[in-house]
Simulated scan of single mutants.
Amino acid sequence: MSGVRSYGDPCGVARGLDVIGERWALLVVRDLLLGPRRFNDLLGGLPGVSPNVLSQRLRQLTEQGVVQRRDLGPPTRVHLYELTEWGRALEPILLQFGRWGSQSPQMPEGALGVDSLLLSVKASFDPARAPELAGTYAFHIDADTILAEVAEDAVQIRRGTVPDPDATLTTDIDTLRAVCGSEITLPAAVESGALRLTGDEDAQRRLTALLLSPFTPAPQPATP
């Protein structure tokens, strides 16, 4: 495999690291979990990676069978990168790894991207809340459209559209970060015009509860 170093260890952990252990590789996988992306979309969502390094990681992940490239052809001539079935099998591993990593005392100064924010929703989802949050919700964030569907005991989040979501949130990434980071309340963002909610009142409430669940501190027990 071109340019890939191996641990030379038959253990499954070492073999897995041979595939996704290079720097940026796992973050490329993370940013493809919600659906296909163009090269420039991936580049914009990974601050600090150079075009050359990203090209190399995509090539390696493609050669390893984790990622595949899909060419839309004329007239668009757009190349999309997406996870293979084997690559998608990394999702529960990445979500669990994200839960573990969120406990780290170190907090870099970088800003969370759209994918990271919405994957936090999926990683922290409580299946017991599925009945009260059930529905289909659309998030229009800048040029991105992402769907969240809560049914049975799970939430599915992916890029795409549906004709009639129960509720829709429209905003930009800076406002979304500010709301999730408690720098501004959601009602204040709505009042300012930076964020718009549509759908009936109950569906808007469910969308809001779903979105903010990872960023809302758990209630503390009363002190005796």
Rank of each mutant, 00 (worst) to 15 (best):
Y81L: 10
H79F: 04
S50H: 06
G44D: 15
P127F: 00
D115K: 00
E149L: 01
R177P: 11
D164T: 12
D9M: 11
P224R: 09
L54S: 08
L210I: 08
R77W: 01
S102C: 02
V155W: 03
A14Q: 07
L26Y: 00
R59A: 11
A154T: 14
R38N: 03
A130M: 08
V19T: 09
L42E: 04
V13M: 07
A123H: 05
D164W: 00
D71L: 09
L169Q: 03
A14C: 15
G181A: 11
D71I: 01
P47F: 12
L34T: 14
L195V: 07
P165E: 10
D202A: 06
G21P: 04
A14F: 15
M107R: 15
G181M: 02
R129G: 12
P214E: 08
D166M: 01
T223M: 11
D115Q: 06
R77M: 08
I141V: 15
R177G: 10
A143I: 12
W86I: 12
L58E: 08
V13E: 13
L90A: 10
S192I: 01
S192V: 09
T168G: 02
G113N: 11
P108K: 13
L58M: 07
F125A: 07
V114G: 02
S182L: 06
R23H: 13
E82K: 05
G101V: 01
Q220Y: 14
D164R: 06
P221C: 01
H79N: 04
R159N: 04
L43D: 05
T185I: 08
P92K: 13
T145A: 03
A89F: 10
A111C: 03
I141P: 04
P75T: 12
H79V: 03
L42S: 03
D174T: 05
D174A: 10
E191F: 13
L90K: 01
E183M: 03
T223H: 12
T185C: 10
R69A: 05
G44K: 00
L58D: 07
I93K: 02
Y7I: 01
P219C: 10
A151V: 00
L210K: 02
T216V: 04
A148Y: 00
G160N: 07
I20G: 12
E22R: 15
D153R: 10
R59Q: 13
T208Y: 01
C180R: 12
R59V: 03
G45D: 14
R196I: 06
R70Y: 06
L186A: 02
L72M: 08
L72C: 07
Q103W: 11
D126R: 08
L33M: 13
Q64P: 02
D126M: 02
V114K: 07
G3T: 08
I146P: 02
